[in-house]
Simulated scan of single mutants.
Amino acid sequence: MKVVNTEISDVLLIEPQVFGDARGFFFESYNERSFADKMGVTAHLVQDNHSRSSQNVLRGLHYQIQQPQGKLVRSVVGEIFDVAVDIRESSPTFGQWVGYLLSAENKRQLWIPAGFAHGFLVVSEVAEVLYKTTDYYAPQHERCILWNDPDLAIAWPLEATPILSAKDQAGKSFKTAEVFP
């Protein structure tokens, strides 16, 4: 696997080594030892999540203020624009974001450690996203920052009005959101 540093040092883009032939392909999507050795990440992943969404669905920006979750995100069908926002007040990159196209074709994954808000936009006709987390889902601790907050100014590759859940429409502004110390 190739690990690509992003503009936010704790968020890592992972490009797996893919072995392909006439039968198809194989790659190792997660190996705890490789994560520790190549990335210095010793997180224990406890939950797998799988979502399916239509084009222009935007999910996020989500995080848990208690039981924060690190996430290993990939698209297994279609393509998404995946975003991580640093919401650790003591971080030199507080309030900054990174975004990458993850697709079934490029097989890239994004490692987003705890302390970040996460969201994605479906840019293909449909997308299925798998992500592993470092802690369990705790709805009582879930928070949401507005996807279009002007202080974050995320450059979503929108071609139409995004389709949002009621929860995402009611997200807080970055300035009023609970953040990590």
Rank of each mutant, 00 (worst) to 15 (best):
L146D: 08
Y137V: 12
Q109K: 03
F94A: 06
E128A: 13
T134I: 04
A155S: 11
R143I: 11
V41M: 04
P16A: 09
F120H: 06
R23W: 05
V85W: 05
L130D: 12
V73L: 09
I14W: 02
S9N: 13
Q169Y: 02
I65H: 12
K71N: 08
D21S: 09
E178R: 14
V123F: 03
G40L: 11
D86Q: 03
A43K: 06
Q69T: 02
R74P: 01
E15A: 08
G70L: 10
A114D: 09
S54E: 11
K132C: 11
W111D: 07
A160I: 01
L110Y: 01
V77N: 08
D21A: 07
I112G: 12
R59Y: 03
D10L: 07
F94S: 05
H44M: 08
E89N: 13
L72F: 13
Y137W: 11
Q64G: 10
V41R: 01
I163M: 08
G40V: 11
W147C: 07
L45G: 02
M39V: 01
L146E: 07
L110M: 15
P139D: 07
Q64D: 11
R23T: 05
A36L: 15
V11K: 02
I14Q: 05
R108A: 09
N56I: 00
E128I: 04
R143G: 08
P139E: 06
A36W: 02
R52S: 04
T6E: 12
A36I: 12
L121K: 00
G95C: 12
A117M: 08
V85G: 10
Q109L: 13
A117S: 10
T93M: 05
V98W: 02
F25R: 11
V83T: 00
T42N: 15
Q69L: 11
Y30A: 11
K175H: 11
Q69G: 08
S54L: 13
V11I: 06
D86P: 05
C144W: 01
Q47V: 06
G60P: 02
G119I: 00
Y131L: 06
D135A: 15
F81E: 05
D149Y: 04
G24Y: 01
H50P: 02
A43S: 14
K107Y: 02
P150K: 14
I163Q: 11
V122N: 12
Y137M: 09
K172P: 00
M1R: 04
L164M: 13
T133C: 15
A104C: 04
K172S: 14
G99S: 04
T93N: 13
A160C: 04
I145A: 13
H62A: 05
S9D: 15
L102M: 06
R74C: 09
L101T: 14
M1T: 12
G24L: 09
E178H: 10
D10I: 00
E159Y: 00
L61E: 05
Y100N: 01
L158Y: 00
E7G: 10
A84Q: 03
G24T: 10
G24Q: 00
S173M: 06
A36V: 08
M1V: 09
G99F: 01
F27I: 05
Q55I: 12
T134L: 07
P139L: 05
